Amino acid sequence: MDRTTQSLLKENRVHGDSMFPLAAYWIELPSGTHVLDTHWHEEAEFFMLLEGEILFQLDTEYFPLRAGEAVFIESGDIHAAYVLNEDTPCKFCALVFLPDLLASAQYDTIQQNAILPLQEKRQSFPRHITPDVPWQQELLHHLEQMMEAYANKMPGFETFMKGTLLIMLSKITAEGRFENRSQSDDADTTKINRLKKVILYIQDNYQEPIRTRDLSELIPMSEGQFCRFFKMMTRKTPVDYINSYRIRQAADLLQQSERKISDIAFEVGFDNVSYFIKVFRKAMKCSPSEFRKGAG
C-alpha cells in the first residue's frame, strides 16, 4: 500500500499551507486492498480515478467510478470508496483545497457570481464527472493538467492551479451544468450528522477502550439499532471501523519513529500486541515490522 494513504485520511491534516491551501496526493493500491474508510474534511476535493473500478460513497449516495472519471467532494461531505473488482489494482489522485483559495481580494463580480455560490453550495460542480459528457470531459482535462503541474512543480504552478480552478468554475455557470446542494434532505442530514458525531468521538478517544454502547448512547439509539445504522452508513461494523482507524494511526507512528511495536500498539488503543499484529497484517497486507522497513 502507498504510504501516503494513511496521512491522507487524517481529518486534521493540513493540505498545503496558509499561503496556498491546496495539495495533491497520488495513491496506488494493490488488488483487493480497501480504498478509503468513511471520513470527511473541511476542504473540497477532486478525486480522480486513474486505474481500477471502485464504488464511491458521498453522504448517503453510492455510485460506481471507473478509470478516467472523477468525483467532486464538497467541504464536510462524508465520503468513502470500496473495491468493486478484487483482481484489479487501484490508482487515484486526490486534489484537496480550501474554496477560500479562490476568493477575490475584494467583493467583485467573480466573487458574487462564482466564488460565493460555490462556498455556499448553491452553484457547485457535478458530483460524478464523466468523459461521456463533452463539457465534463473538459473538466477532466483541466484536472489532468493540474495534476501534471503540481507533480512537476513547474514555475508558477500555484498561479496555474488557481487559474485553472477558476476556469473550471466558469464551465459550470450555464444552466443545467451546476448543482445546488445548499438544501439537503432532512432525513439524510440527520443520518450524516449522527455519523459525524460518532466518528469524531472515535477520533478523539481511539487511544482508550471504546464500547459499542458508548457510541450508541451518543445518538442515542439502542445498541443493536446503532450497529445496523453504522454498518449501513460505513459498510463496517463499529469494531472494524475503530480498528481500521487505530491501524492508520499506528502506520503513521511506524513511519515517524523507531519506537517498539508493542509501545505503538498500546498507544493507539490495542491492549494485546498479538491481536494488533493480526489486525495490522489483515489491513495492510504486511506485518508492522515489514511496513516500517518498506516505509524507510
Rank of each mutant, 00 (worst) to 15 (best):
R281K: 15
F270A: 11
R246T: 05
L116D: 12
E42R: 15
N85T: 08
D271M: 07
R177A: 01
I199A: 09
D108G: 09
C286H: 03
Y245Q: 12
L195T: 06
L29R: 07
I247A: 08
E138R: 14
I129M: 06
V71H: 05
T109L: 14
I54V: 15
A149K: 02
G176K: 08
K171P: 02
M233F: 02
K10W: 11
I110E: 12
L84N: 11
F276A: 10
G52M: 13
A81Y: 00
L55Q: 13
L116P: 02
T130K: 11
F160W: 11
Q123T: 04
V83L: 11
E74T: 03
M19C: 03
E86T: 01
T5N: 10
L98S: 15
L49C: 02
A80F: 04
L116S: 02
M48V: 11
P117S: 10
M1F: 03
M284S: 02
Q106M: 12
D252Q: 11
R177Y: 09
Q249R: 15
L254K: 03
P238H: 09
P30G: 09
L200V: 05
S18P: 00
A105M: 11
A251Y: 03
K196E: 03
H15K: 03
E208H: 10
M154D: 04
P30C: 08
Q183S: 08
G176W: 13
Y107N: 11
T159Q: 13
Q119I: 11
L139H: 03
N113F: 10
D2P: 01
E175T: 05
I242V: 15
Y25Q: 01
S18K: 10
C227D: 00
W135F: 13
I73V: 15
A250T: 01
F226E: 02
R248W: 04
D186Y: 13
V273C: 08
L9G: 04
L118I: 04
F72C: 03
D252V: 08
N152P: 00
Q249F: 08
M146C: 11
E11W: 09
A67F: 02
T237F: 05
C286Q: 10
Q111L: 07
V96T: 14
Y206G: 04
G32K: 02
T173P: 00
K121M: 12
L84P: 00
C90K: 06
S216A: 15
F270S: 07
K162G: 06
I202L: 06
K196V: 12
Y241R: 06
Q112S: 12
L29C: 00
C286N: 03
H39D: 05
M161K: 02
I54R: 10
E175G: 00
I277Y: 00
